[in-house]
Amino acid sequence: MRIDKAQVAQRFARAHQSYKTHAVVQQQICQQLMAKMQQYIVQQKLSDQPQPCFENVLEIGCGSGNLTDLLLREFQIQQLTLNDLYAEVLHAYLHHPQTTSTQIHGLIGDIEQLDFPQSLDLICSSSALQWVEDFGALLCKANQALKPQGYLCFSTFGPQNLTEIKQLTGQGLHYLSMDALQQQLKQQGFEVLHCSEQLESLSFEHPKQILQHLKATGVTGTAQGQRWNKTTLTEFYRGYEQFSQQHSSQQKSYTLTYHPIYCLARRMP
Rank of each mutant, 00 (worst) to 15 (best):
I123P: 05
G136M: 09
N143E: 10
C140H: 15
L146V: 07
Q130T: 01
V132H: 02
S127M: 11
Q130N: 12
G136H: 06
W131C: 07
L138I: 12
F154H: 01
D134P: 05
A137C: 09
Q149G: 12
F154V: 01
S126R: 01
D121M: 07
G150V: 09
W131L: 05
Y151E: 12
G150A: 06
L129I: 00
F135W: 03
Q149M: 13
C140R: 15
S125D: 14
Y151L: 15
D121L: 01
L152N: 15
A128K: 01
C140Y: 12
V132Q: 09
Q144S: 07
S126F: 03
S127G: 13
L138G: 06
S125Y: 07
A137T: 11
N143S: 11
Y151C: 08
A142Q: 04
A145P: 12
K141C: 13
E133W: 10
S125R: 02
L146H: 07
C140A: 15
D134Q: 12
L152C: 13
K147M: 07
L138V: 10
L122K: 06
D121V: 06
L152D: 13
L138F: 14
D134N: 11
Q130Y: 05
F135A: 07
Q130M: 05
A145V: 13
F135R: 07
K147F: 08
A142H: 02
K147C: 08
